[in-house]
Structure formats: C-alpha cells, structure tokens
Design a protein around this nucleic acid. Structure first.
Length: 479
DNA sequence: ATGTCC
C-alpha cells in the first residue's frame, strides 16, 4: 500500500476508496520504528480502522503500535455519534487496562537496604498471575457497586482517600455504567478479582526518578530526580475480558442487520446510537470502573506494605497519587473538528489520553501544565511521565502512546528467553523481581519490547506530548 | 490481556 512520509515523525496511508477507507490512516513513527511497522500486519489493521462507519479525521496509530485484535494496539479512532459505530475490538479485551503512579518522600537510600523484603512483601500481599483471586470477598451487590462507583467504591471501603479520586482520569468513575448490561458470567469471573494484578505486562514496580526533562512540570507533578515512586499497571481482569467477549458476539450478530460491511470481522461493531452500541458502552463503563477500583485497592495495600516494611507513617512516606490513566477505553469527548465543536466517540486502544494545559478535565493542581500521562516500559529499562499538549488535542483527539510496544511475539520472546536466567540477570543490575509464572516472565523479557525511550522520543518530537521524567525500576512484581 | 480451548 501507499505509505507517504509527511515529516520525520508522521506517515500517512492516503484514503483509498477501493479499500473502503473513509479517511486516511496516520502513523506516528521515526524511520527506525517505521522499519519495524512497515511490513507488520498492524499496518493493515490501522488502514482497516479507516473503513469504520462515521470515523472522523484519520485512523491513528502511535509509535508503539503492534498487532492486536481488529485494530492495532496503539490505535486511536474517533467516530461521529450520529453516523458512526462503537467497536469492542477498538477498545480491546482488557478494558481500562491502565497505569497509576504514586510519588513518595523517599530516595533510593531509604529503601535500598530493605528492598528485597519490600518486594517480597508486596508480592505476598498483592495477588498476581492468571486466575489470581484477591482477598476481598465481594457479594454480588458489592460487585455491582464496584461497577457503578469505580475507585470511589474502594475509597468508601477505606482503600485510599478523596484526594486519590481527584487524581484519576474521570475521577475514577465513568458515568453511565449499567450493571444490567453485563452478563452474570462476567460478574462471576470478576467476583474474586478486585485487588489483583493479573499477568502479562501487568506489574507493580518500585522505581526511581532517573532523569527530569522538564523541571517545572515535574515540580507541579510532585516529582524530583532520585525520588522513589511506585507504578501500578493492571486492568479489569476476567471481568472486562468477558464483557469484550460477550459484546463481540452481540456485534457480530447485528452487523448485517445494520448493513455494516468491514474488511475484518474482528472489527465487529454496531451503530453508536443502536441498542447494541449503547449496551456495550454501558457494560464497557462497568468494566472501566472495575479496573479503577482494582488499581485503588492495590494502591492501599502497597501503602500498607511500605509502612510496615520501612516502619514509617503515611505522612512521612508521602505515597500520594500523581495520576491514573486508562490505556484501553471508549470516551465521549468534545473535540474541535475543522473549527466546529463536536461530541465524538473516542476509542483508545493501547493509547493514553494526553489533554493539554487548560483543559477542564485536567485536575486543578495540574491544569496549568497539562495532564500527567504515564507510559510504562519493560521491566529492565524505563517508564516515562509525559504531559499532554495542545497539539495532541488538535491532531490525535488528545492522545499519545501507551508503552514500549512489543517487538517480539510472546512465542518469539519465550524462544529468546531460553537459556536466560532473567531474574538473576535483572538482580545483577539492581532490579529485584518476584513473579508467579515462569512463562510470563520469559514473555516479558526486556528484549521482547521496543525501547520505550525511542517511542517516547517520537511523541515528544512530534509534539503530541511533552517529556517530563524518566523512571527506572528497582523492584518488580509480576503475574 | 484472558479460568491462554467449554
């Protein structure tokens, strides 16, 4: 297909009517990242996204893009609510997979002597792995409350504070969730999974702020070089997975009736205003709220572990929430399209909201500098804190990348990891790792990922977010 | 990502 380089960081596949494209596809990458993308199936997927009814602007892909279900991971598509569709594959299986960052009053020498104990206690207290079950015993009524109230439910149970809620995307609770649109099977799978980490690239890391790129914004976010921080990466576990599974079936059944034809059945979708579309939206919001509550509970336990292991009180620790972002979600947002304010159905799938300075949805304490945007990398290299920009608002519906992005398939990663003592190799570099699944650790070997620094440099240079700080892991727990 | 095939 035709792929035109617009500038050093932007590429376009022009609208091709024969392919059914309604808009162009646009990809953010430099030459090196594009070399990996060019012959990848994910390029076909971002082009396929351009065929979705009602799509506005362009089908977008971030530099961490890689192959996913239907749309690439790293994709952003925005639809007109009156003429467009909503697509479960445009959000992904792990609804509201996301990340939250806690800052602290600590520096490395405060934790290094107790680091092994700290990581072991975090691992003991926070359930990890596929099928992991938490210590919370929820009644069906409790679980419904989780889906309606999100992180607020967790705070009301004593897990964290009101101050935390102010530092979560959407306040940790999406309006319009309807548990009656969620299957009993999803509720059964989720019942024991609030407050669990899961598997794959999900993790809790103890990190050090390794380099500050923007002193002013870092200061506003409460970050400084040498500081200890905690990054928590998890989602809606089996609950969201089941919601996605259920609604893919619903959409596949109704697409023909709505006269929707697409190049890939994995893009299954329904008109946004249809009953099926609205039901998915309400169920997706339940799963998003489940994930916000999940991260909130884990946060409370992480704080307790720090207090016990370091023998410090909460005020001295200062483990305050910097921010919590969703990576896989559908949001109804207002955007300027060719000079006109419009409500749009924004699908972010492996992409992060990056709202600019002055945006009303950025918490007041950060509003002058833009929304904190959290980019987890692999467990051996780094993660980043970025800030949202006006250019993101103008070009990417206020979105940026979400992580390093896989360079190797899980199978290829396992093959590469054979013969590596991953845990020991990381420990030799001062990174303590505790994990549940050996196979997962192999799939997550740092070399399986693109270098998150390359990805972040592209979104920074393209102007769709601004580099604030780099963090490096010293303690990791994984599923 | 996921009770990694009910």
């Amino acid at each position: 297909m035709e792929l035109i380089q617009l500038d050093p960081y932007r590429w376009e596949v022009p609208q091709d009517h024969e392919r059914g494209m309604r808009v162009p596809a646009r990809i953010y990458a430099d030459d090196r990242l594009m070399a990996a993308i060019r012959n990848d199936q994910s390029l076909v997927q971002v082009v396929n996204g351009a065929t979705l009814p009602g799509i506005v602007g362009a089908s977008l892909a971030m530099p961490d893009m890689h192959f996913g279900y239907g749309l690439p991971i790293g994709g952003v598509v925005a639809m007109d609510p009156d003429t467009g569709v909503i697509s479960p594959g445009g959000t992904g299986y792990d609804i509201n997979c996301g990340v939250r960052l806690l800052r602290s009053n600590l520096v490395e020498q405060d934790v290094r002597p107790r680091l092994k104990t700290l990581v072991e206690e975090l691992f003991r207290r926070i359930p990890t792995g596929v099928g992991s079950r938490g210590k919370l015993k929820l009644s069906p009524a409790d679980e419904r409350a989780v889906t309606l109230r999100g992180a607020r439910w967790a705070v009301q149970q004593g897990y964290g504070s009101e101050a935390d809620l102010a530092c979560i995307e959407a306040g940790g609770c999406l309006e319009g969730a309807d548990p009656d649109k969620v299957s009993s099977k999803a509720f059964e799978r989720g019942r024991s999974q609030v407050g669990t980490l899961g598997s794959g690239n999900h993790f809790l890391e103890v990190q050090i702020v390794d380099e500050v790129f923007d002193e002013h914004i870092a200061n506003v976010f409460g970050l400084f070089a040498g500081q200890i921080a905690v990054l928590i990466h998890t989602g809606s576990r089996g609950f969201g997975h089941q919601v996605c599974t259920d609604y893919l079936v619903v959409m596949e059944r109704c697409m023909e009736r709505y006269g929707i034809q697409l190049p890939d059945r994995q893009l299954a979708c329904a008109p946004f205003r249809s009953p099926e579309g609205q039901d998915y939206l309400a169920a997706m919001r339940c799963a998003a709220n489940f994930a916000f509550a999940n991260r909130q509970c884990i946060t409370a336990w992480a704080r307790q572990v720090f207090e016990q292991v370091l023998g410090m009180g909460p005020r001295d620790l200062g483990l305050a929430l910097v921010y919590d972002v969703a990576h896989n979600i559908v949001k109804i947002e207002e955007h300027l399209v060719n000079g006109t304010r419009r409500q749009l159905v924004v699908h972010r799938k492996g992409a992060t909201r990056a709202f600019p300075p002055g945006h009303p949805e950025v918490p007041p304490q950060y509003r002058a500098v833009g929304q904190p945007t959290l980019i987890p990398g692999d467990m051996g290299r780094a993660s980043y804190v970025l800030a949202g920009t006006q250019r993101a608002m103008e070009e990417t519906f206020g979105s940026t990348c979400h992580g390093a992005g896989r360079a190797l398939s899980r199978h290829a990663a396992k093959r590469l990891a054979k013969g590596h003592a991953i845990q020991r190799e990381l420990e030799d570099r001062g990174i303590i790792v505790r994990y549940t699944g050996r196979a997962t650790l192999m799939e997550e070997i740092p070399e399986a990922y693109k270098d998150v620094t390359d990805v972040v440099n592209v979104v920074h240079a393209a102007g769709i977010s601004r580099k604030v700080a780099r963090l490096r892991p010293i303690g990791v727990i994984k599923g």
